[in-house]
Structure formats: structure tokens, C-alpha cells
Design a protein around this nucleic acid. Structure first.
Lengths: 102, 102
DNA sequence: ACTTTGTGTTAGTTGCTACTTTCGTAAGCA
DNA sequence: TGCTTACGAAAGTAGCAACTAACACAAAGT
């Protein structure tokens, strides 16, 4: 999966808050919604986005649906940013060496 | 600065592409724009967003404006995600220990 | 002074996205 | 079989964001 869906998923403040919530403990859709001032369907949509981005996992038991954070999803972005960052640093390092060498 | 502006800045595919471009080397606004199919003002706006997020630095010389990636800006998100991620892992570790302990 | 070059700014348009309201559905209970 | 609970899905709306076209402006050349 590309990184953009994951990035735009956590770029939304509300979704980041949801993610922080289900990172602490597994919660049902209703429990999550009760923490916010928006309607339940809105939260449901956010959960759908997070799930599609691979940032949360869903577990159904009866009529309830429990959600929990999926650290592997976060690891993906982290790895991407690390590569991006390290490449950038390498570039700077090479530039500095070239500067020194002349 | 909070993380959301930085995250939403790089969540935009075009801006991420611009960032990848100025990460390689310092480029002028026009040079950056020539890499894309959109108009120059559009790129100018994107550069404004990236600059506001602290992801690029601007250097003016004559009528030209050169942009380069600012690794510190990327480091900020990376640090944030690492904390987020590590907290999540700690939580999992504690849960596993509790599981083992019973 | 005039023109050209390189760029940001503004106004207006289109398209996306977060939201609400309403409806549908599956599971549990009387 | 109803009735309730706990959800997601669909449709419609409002606001924002990415874009274009036209303008403004500063620096450098002629």
C-alpha cells in the first residue's frame, strides 16, 4: 500500500485522537463515539478510513465491534519517513564532504 | 508547532513529490514547477504550505527564490510517530506480560 | 525609462471531505 | 415474533483545499 492514504488518515486531528484512544485499549464503536461531540456515524466513517489505511483492526462479537490500534500500520509510515529523512541526511553529508574536499 | 499541519502537508501527494525534489537539491520555484503538469501559482501555493509547516527553507537571490528541504521539520513528525509507536508497543508488551502472568 | 524575467497574490471555480439525518441490518432478549 | 441494541450504509450539505486565470511587483538587462 502507498503511504498517502496512511498519512492523510493520521493528518485528520479527529482520527489521530481516535487512534490515540484505541492505542490505549480496545474499544467498541459506541465507546469511541462517546468521547467526541460528533455523531456516531461520523466516527464510524473515520473508523472505516483508519481500517482501510491498516491503522486499526476490527473484532466483531455479537452486535458490537471492537477496534484496536495496529502498530504495524504506524510502523509503515515510520519506516517511510526514516528512509526519507536518512536519504536527506546522506545528501547533506555528501554535500558537506564535497564542500570540504574542494 | 503541532503535528497536524506537518502531517497534512506531506499527506498531499504533490507536496510530497515537491519535498522529494527539493530534498535532492536546492531548486528555484520555476524549476520545481517544470516537473509538474500544473501551473506555477499552484506550485507556489504548495511551497507556501510546506514553508509554513517548516518543511522547506526559502533563499532569495535576485528575482529567484530557491527552496530546499528542511530535515528538522521531518524529524519532528518522525519523533512524534516514534513516541506514538513506542507507547503502543509498551502497551502490547504489558498486555503480553499480564497474559503470561496469569 | 522600458521591457523581460521570475515569482507571489488574489479572485473565482471545482472537487473532495467531514459531517448530519435517515434508513437498513444483524444479534440478543421478552 | 416483535422489540431493542449496536452498528454500518446511503444521501445530502457545508466548508475547505487545490487549482486556473489574471494581476502585481521587484530585480536585472537594454
Amino acid at each position: 500500500m502507498s503511504v498517502s492514504p496512511v498519512l492523510s488518515a493520521i493528518a485528520e486531528p479527529r482520527r489521530l485522537a481516535i487512534l490515540a484512544l484505541v492505542k490505549e485499549s480496545e474499544l467498541s464503536s459506541g465507546e469511541i463515539a462517546s468521547h467526541f461531540a460528533v455523531t456516531r456515524p461520523a466516527i464510524s466513517q473515520h473508523l472505516g478510513v483508519l481500517k482501510a489505511a491498516g491503522l486499526v483492526a476490527e473484532r466483531r462479537v455479537g452486535t458490537k465491534r471492537f477496534y484496536r490500534a495496529r502498530p504495524q500500520g504506524l510502523a509503515e509510515i515510520r519506516a517511510f519517513l526514516e528512509t526519507f529523512w536518512d536519504d536527506s541526511l546522506q545528501r547533506l553529508k555528501r554535500a558537506a564532504e564535497a564542500e570540504e574536499g574542494r
